[in-house]
Simulated scan of single mutants.
Amino acid sequence: MNQLSKRRTMGRVSGENAVIEVAWLYYHDGLNQKDIAEAFGISRATVVNYLQEAREKGLIRITLAAPAFTTHRLAAELCRRFGLTAAYVVPDEGTTQEQQFMRVVRGAALWLPELLAPGDRLGVAWGRTVFDLAAALERHDIADMTVLQLVGSMATPYGFTAEACSTRLAQRLGARCLNLHAPAILSSADLAAALRAEPIISRQLAGIETLNKLLFSVGTILPDSHIMSAGLATQADLDHYVAAGAAGVICGRFVDAGGRAIPGPMEARMIGIPMERLTGLPMGILVTPGKDKVEASMAAIRGGYVTHLVTCTTVAEALLSAAG
């Protein structure tokens, strides 16, 4: 008696057992929806509903192997043109801006565990991209790993504060978390200097400089950018840096088109990792989910912050076009 015949002898099942049975037959045994419906005496619509319920409850995981995205023509061209170690390019044809964003974030969440190793000290920036990436990440346990908060805290209206990003990511990776218990920016340079000299903060600042890998997204220089909405920069600050040639924001610092930090009124008042510690790392993972970040992403690539890039086809084409 084959497996399908055996299922027919079982009669009807209900509740979560039915969801599990249907999911097993469909995904593991390779049966089609029609045969499953006949085996259990249910409609095909019910089978579809059971499969959807299984996905929503997290009972099944559907993934595509990384080479499907890292060997993509555009991924290979990005590596060749920009000297990257690897690129992960997801398709985005026919997607809305939000759908495009989520595809890139989920792609980054799928690829990230493959890029990490026991003993890594992963420095993370802040923002919606990193926060949602952590939410999409499956639980892993990477031995002796530490996640480092690279920028101090800020009052953001969105919930994805720097400490929330690093803490959530550490929880997903089964890692220790080293948070930076200080504001991202102070009202005066003297106050910032005094705070950096505090033994607790001094030790934390020294700790975050031990990173060997970096996970980040870039910020834009638009008036509605996160650095503005979080209160790190004022309109006067933004105007100053734009006039000085700012092309984007990396870890709360304005950089020019070549990825160089721009001197200005904010630097002496900020608490966070020095920009020079973010270049030349063994791995810098940049996640770029939208065309609004093309200019800033180009700056990060030129500045030597990036070895690995996660993006979508539309952004990949825009990056290659911007490179000339």
Rank of each mutant, 00 (worst) to 15 (best):
L4M: 11
R8E: 13
G11W: 03
V13R: 05
S14K: 08
S14N: 10
G15C: 02
E21A: 07
E21K: 00
V22I: 11
Y27H: 15
D35Y: 00
D35H: 02
D35V: 01
A37V: 04
A37D: 06
A39K: 05
I42C: 11
T46W: 00
Q52L: 11
K57W: 02
R61M: 05
R61P: 00
T70V: 12
H72V: 10
A76E: 15
E77D: 14
E77L: 09
L78R: 09
R80E: 13
F82K: 08
G83Q: 09
G83Y: 08
A86T: 14
P91T: 06
E93S: 12
E93H: 10
E93D: 15
T95D: 15
T95R: 09
T96C: 02
T96G: 13
T96Q: 03
E98H: 08
Q100S: 12
R121Y: 00
L122K: 10
G127C: 10
V130M: 04
V130W: 01
F131R: 09
A135T: 13
L137P: 11
E138A: 12
I142M: 07
A143C: 01
G152S: 12
M154I: 13
T156M: 07
Y158T: 12
F160D: 15
R172C: 14
G174C: 05
C177D: 12
L178I: 09
L180Q: 13
H181T: 12
P183L: 05
L186K: 05
A189L: 08
A192K: 09
R196E: 13
S202R: 15
R203Y: 07
G207T: 06
N212E: 11
L215G: 03
S217K: 02
V218W: 00
V218D: 09
G219M: 02
G219Y: 07
I221D: 08
L222D: 07
H226N: 11
H226T: 12
I227T: 12
A233T: 04
L238D: 11
V242F: 02
A247T: 03
G248Y: 01
G248D: 04
D256L: 02
A257M: 00
P265E: 05
I271K: 07
I271T: 13
T279I: 09
I285R: 00
I285P: 08
L286E: 01
G290T: 06
E295F: 00
T307D: 14
L309W: 01
V310G: 09
V315F: 01
A316Q: 04
L319I: 02
L320T: 08
A322L: 10
A323Q: 12
G324Q: 14
